[in-house]
């Protein structure tokens, strides 16, 4: 199971007086369309446990793919997604990169190193599209951000 905590999206859980919980989550990307879904799931799951919940958005610090825990990375791989490498830390202006993106990654289906980048933008905001040169299967890579 891949949890919001493992994704680094869950920032805080505060148990208030009585049976009320305040949950703080942060978006992965500014336009992440899953925020409403995550909030509704949190409220519903906590309601099943007899708790009322308020879900707050936290914007700072901005989410980084480095916030995904080792357990989260393992869960991503188990679901056929390639986990992100270390995100680049920027000090000063961000340098332009016009060269092809190079990542050292393996196919989550067959373990081959022969992965080819199809697009830096995948079916969701946080993933890039790859295709394995060995088994031929396409897969998503969670981008470093």
């Amino acid at each position: 199971m891949l949890t919001l905590a493992d994704l680094g999206v869950l920032r805080a859980v505060d148990v208030d007086e009585g049976d009320h919980v305040t949950v703080s989550i942060t978006p992965t990307y500014s336009g992440c369309p899953a925020m409403a879904s995550m909030r509704d799931d949190l409220v519903r799951t906590l309601a099943d446990e007899g708790l009322t919940a308020t879900v707050k958005v936290v914007l700072a610090p901005a989410w980084s793919s480095d916030d995904i825990t080792p357990a989260g990375r393992a869960a991503l791989a188990a679901h056929g997604l390639s986990a992100p490498g270390p995100a680049t830390r920027h000090t000063g202006p961000i340098a332009l990169n016009l060269m092809p993106v190079r990542r050292s990654l393996t196919c989550p289906h067959c373990g081959s190193y022969a992965a080819q980048l199809s697009s830096e933008f995948g079916p969701t905001a946080c993933t890039a599209l790859y295709r394995c040169g060995a088994c031929g299967e396409p897969f998503e890579h969670v981008k470093e951000i």
Binding site: Y29, S30, G31, C32, S118, S119, E120, F121, G122, A125
Partner: peptide, 18 residues
């Protein structure tokens, strides 16, 4: 691929706009 890429850029900008 470009269709998806442009839609992704569009979505990021929409998120910033919201």
């Amino acid at each position: 691929e470009e269709d998806i890429a442009l839609a992704n850029i569009s979505l990021d900008l929409l998120g910033q706009a919201r």
